[in-house]
Design a protein around this nucleic acid. Sequence first.
DNA 1: CTGAAAGCGCTTACAG
DNA 2: CTGAAAGCGCTTACAG
Lengths: 348, 348
Amino acid sequence: MTGTRKAVTLSDVAQLAGVSLSIASKALRGGGRMTPATRQRVVDAAATLKFRPNTLAQSFAQGRSLVIGVVVEHSSDLFTMPVVMGVTSTLGNLDLAVLVYDASEGPERRTDVVAKLRARMVDGILVVGDGTKHPVPSITGEVDVPVVYAFCESESARDTSFMPDGFGAGRMVAEHLIGLGRRKIAHITSGNDTSAASRSAGLVAGLADAGLSLALTSPLVGDWSQAWGMTAAREILRRREDVDAVFCGNDQLAVGAQRVFRSEGVRVPEDIAIVGYDNLNRLVESAPLITTVDPELYRLGGTAARYLVESGAEREPGVQHLPCTLIPGWSTQPDGARPAASFADDAP
Amino acid sequence: MTGTRKAVTLSDVAQLAGVSLSIASKALRGGGRMTPATRQRVVDAAATLKFRPNTLAQSFAQGRSLVIGVVVEHSSDLFTMPVVMGVTSTLGNLDLAVLVYDASEGPERRTDVVAKLRARMVDGILVVGDGTKHPVPSITGEVDVPVVYAFCESESARDTSFMPDGFGAGRMVAEHLIGLGRRKIAHITSGNDTSAASRSAGLVAGLADAGLSLALTSPLVGDWSQAWGMTAAREILRRREDVDAVFCGNDQLAVGAQRVFRSEGVRVPEDIAIVGYDNLNRLVESAPLITTVDPELYRLGGTAARYLVESGAEREPGVQHLPCTLIPGWSTQPDGARPAASFADDAP
DNA sequence: CTGAAAGCGCTTACAG
DNA sequence: CTGAAAGCGCTTACAG
C-alpha cells in the first residue's frame, strides 16, 4: 500500500459537495428526497474522492454484520465441500462473508456455536448437513435471523431445507432408460441410506408411469462398495431374467457392475445399459464416463445461500427438492464412444 | 429467539460490577492494571449477565473486521476446494470469517476485488491458486494488511507462499521404493506441468542419493489420462529392461499402468510396484488403494491461514513447501490385501 | 488503581 | 429540501 494515508470519509465527500453529512449519506444510499442536482453533486464528489464507505462503520450503525454463519458437521467431507463452497462463493459474490463453524473441529457444543453466531450478529445462518435424510435439530428458534438448511432436512417442518431431488433423479433415470427402449430395469443400491431410498422410490414411480415394474421384483440391496456392485451384477446374470438396464444407487456400484458384465461377455450398453449416481468418477477419470446423475451440490449450496439472503421474512416452510442433472455417458449410448482402453476390463 | 430482548451491553456489566465503562472493558480484555478483586467483580458480573461483547462495535472501535479476504481463481475446482475449505474451517475456528471472491464468477477485474477487500477492511488476504507453479501476480503492495499465497507462488519473492512439497514427495517415493528393494524405477508423468516437474526432480534426486538413476533413462512424458498410463506401461514392458517399480505423476496414470501390467501377467507389486500421486482415488474407491502420495491440500489451506493470522508483521519471504504424506496401498505391499475383485481386471 | 470523555464513521429520526 | 444532533457499543489515550 502506498502509505497508510488517511481514508476518505463521508464527511470529506459532504464537504466537497457542500452539503451536510446526512444529505451525503442519503444521496449515496439512494434514499431520501432531495433535488437531483444535490444528489448528483454528492455522487460526483464521492467519485472524485474515490470514496469507499467504511463497511465496519456501516455495519455498526445498521446492526448488519454482512456475515453469514455456516454450521457444518464435517467440512472436509467429499459431499459437504461442494455445498459449502457453493454457499461461500455465491455469498462472496454478494459481498457477504461466511463464518464457518465445523462441528467436527473444536469440541464446542452446538449451543456454543449458536451463541457465538449470535454474538457475532450474523445476518443469517446456513446449516449444512451430510445429505442424509436424518433430520437435523432446528436452531431456528434460538436466533432471530433467518436460518436455512442445506443438504439436510430440519427437524422442524416450519424450516426451509434444500435437498437434491433424489426422487426426481430416480424418475428421470427411469424415463431415460425407457426412452432408450429398455423394459426390464433392475436396481442395485445400498440399505441404511434414506436418501438413496428416495432415488429407489423415484425409479419405481417412473417405471410405474410406463406401466412397468422393477425387474427382479425388488432392488438388490447391499452397501456402497464396488465389490457389492460386482456381486449384485453376478446375481442379475444368474437370475437370467433378461434384464436390459440397471440403475445403480451410486457410481461405485455402477463401475463394479459394468466390470462384471463386460468380463462376462455382456455388452454394455447394447445388452444391458447402466446408470450410476453422484457424478463422482468425473473427478478422477478423464475418459468417457458411465452415465450418471449429478446431484449438483455446488449449485445447491449456492441456491440455498441466495434464498437465505433474498427471502425476506417470508420463507416457505418445508423441503425444497432441487433438480439433479442426468449426465449421459457411454453406458447408455449405443452409438457413443466406448472407452475400450480406459474403462474396459479387457486391456487391448 | 425468545423475543428480541435488548442485548446486554458492557455498560450493564460495568454497572452491575460497580465500576466504570473503561475498567469493565480493560478487565474483560485482560489488559490494564487493576486490583484482582476489581477484575474479578467485572468478570463475575459479565458471567451473571451472560455478556457477549458486540463484535460489530468492537470491530468498529478497533478497525479490525475479523474478516479475511480470500481470492480464488475457480472455487469449484477439484483441487482448489479442499484448500479453500481448509482455510475457511481453520479461520472459523479462530472466529474469523472469510470473504471469498471467485475470479471465475463475476467479471470484476482483480483490482476491483482488491478495492472491495480494502473497503471491507479485511484483516488479511489469502490468495489461493491452482497448484501450478506459474507465478500469480502479487497484490501485497496494493494493500496494507498481510497477504499470504496458498497453493500458488507469488510473482514477488518477498511474499510468502505455501505449496505442497512436490520435490520432497518425489524423493519420498524414491526412498519408499528403494526401501522395498527396488532398483529399476521408471517414471510416467505429464509434460506441461511445472509442479509435476518438481516431483520428477525429487524422484531423480532420491534415486541419486542411493546411487541409482531413472530406469529407461528418462521419464515417459504424456498427458494426465489413464489412457496415457496404459500406453506408457506397454512401452515399459516392450523395452524389457527389468523395471521393478514405476512412479506415476498422478493416480490416473497409476490406474492405467496397473491395468496393463496385470492384464499382461505382470504381478503388482511382486514384479512391478506402482505409486501414484494425488490420493484422489480414495474419493471414489472403497477398496484397498494403489499406493499414492497425498498432497494434503486441506491441511495446506489451514496452515497458510494460520500462518496469515499468527505471523505478525514478520512474514518469512519465499515459498514454504509443506510435506506430503505417503499413503501405502497394495501396489507396493507384497503382503498386503490385493483387491482381486475391486481393482483387478480379472473379475473372478 | 480508576474514571470521564473523546472517538471510531456512518445512519437515522427529528426539526426546521 | 436540508441540516444539526444523537446514537450504534466498544476502546483507548489521558487525567486524576
